[in-house]
């Protein structure tokens, strides 16, 4: 009998405590609780996250662009740290894995209150991460010209930084306008065809027209055509046979390399007679760019950095 009363009392106490706590919390969560549409349905985020883990390069970029506080990130593809263009802003951020290889223990150890995951995070991984903190998996289709913009808005909403995101997007748009005007002034209409490739020892990978950096090139006035060499939904083609090099013969070739030494990659490419005879090579219109930035990154800061690269290349040409 006593035992039962005791149990009843305890239940009662517990429910009162819970009620009080929830009434106290209501004020904060009503103001700041928001539901974010993700690939795995709506996710509720409360308040302004203070400790954000980004498992995707575009998420780290956005988080830094809106001045939120990332405490963990993954390395850039093929690197050993976050991408160079973003390194100084990221500071000494904790590394919690590689793209598609998250180190769950490392994520837990930085005690995140929000996790921004990669677009292709699978269900199992998602469930696991959700037990640590709310997880945002972008539902934005990849390789569309406005993918980065929609992703930025999505992540910014989760971060409670929507106004900052709009400011950054507006800044990017005005920069696109500036660079587009420069391109229009310096390069005649007929010579604005370009191709974006990554040089591999066995041959070039042609990047998809819809790839992030390719769509920026298009936004500032270049014409990019992957000649249907890239399969639907893939970021780039298979390494092309050297015999197909002529299909990437445009006025401009943007040559991306995963390591930073672009000149060396260009030198390696020049060894191949098939590359050396391209029009763009003969006219010195091959621009070496960082593959970390141009073929792996995405996000507003990456757009700004790519625009800087384009501006520098276009300014440097001899009229």
């Amino acid at each position: 009998m006593t035992c039962r009363t005791h149990a009843l009392k305890q239940t009662l106490l517990r429910s009162i405590a819970a009620l009080t706590l929830s009434t106290m919390g209501v004020g904060a969560s009503l103001a700041d609780s928001r539901s974010v549409e993700t690939a795995y349905g709506p996710v509720t985020v409360n308040g302004q996250p203070e400790r954000v883990v980004t498992l995707y390069e575009g998420a780290l970029d956005t988080t830094l662009a809106v001045d939120a506080n990332p405490v963990g990130a993954v390395i850039t593809r093929g690197g050993s740290d976050v991408a160079d263009y973003i390194k100084s802003r990221a500071g000494d951020i904790a590394i919690v894995g590689a793209p598609a290889e998250t180190n769950i223990e490392a994520v837990i150890s930085v005690r995140p209150d929000l996790i921004l995951a990669a677009p292709r995070t699978n269900e199992q991984q998602y469930q696991l991460l959700s037990r640590i903190a709310p997880v945002i998996v972008s539902d934005v289709p990849m390789f569309q010209p406005d993918s980065w913009e929609r992703e930025t808005r999505l992540f910014a909403k989760a971060l409670g930084k929507e106004e900052a995101a709009e400011r950054v997007i507006a800044k990017v748009e005005s920069r696109i306008g500036e660079v587009a005007a420069l391109v229009a002034a310096r390069i005649p209409e007929a010579q604005r065809d370009a191709t974006l490739v990554r040089w591999m020892p066995q041959g070039p990978l042609v990047m998809a027209e819809g790839l992030f950096s390719a769509s920026i090139l298009q936004a500032v006035g270049f014409r990019i055509d992957d000649n249907d060499l890239v399969k639907e939904g893939r970021p780039h083609s298979e390494p092309l046979s050297l015999e197909n090099l002529s299909s990437m013969d445009q006025s401009w070739v943007f040559l991306a390399t995963l390591n930073e030494d672009g000149d060396k990659a260009l030198e390696a490419a020049r060894q191949s007679p098939a590359f050396a005879r391209l029009d763009a090579v003969e006219h010195d219109r091959v621009i070496t760019v960082s593959g970390q930035l141009w073929t792996s990154a995405t996000g507003p800061l990456a757009v700004l950095a790519i625009l800087d690269d384009i501006e520098a290349a276009v300014t440097a040409i001899q009229p």
Binding site: G79, Q202, S241, L258
Partner: peptide, 20 residues
């Protein structure tokens, strides 16, 4: 080494294309 890795990976699968 990433740079070497690209080169080694290509070479290790065997090919006679583009060899000087």
């Amino acid at each position: 080494d990433q740079r070497a890795a690209d080169e080694i990976r290509f070479w290790i699968t065997g090919s006679v294309a583009g060899k000087p």
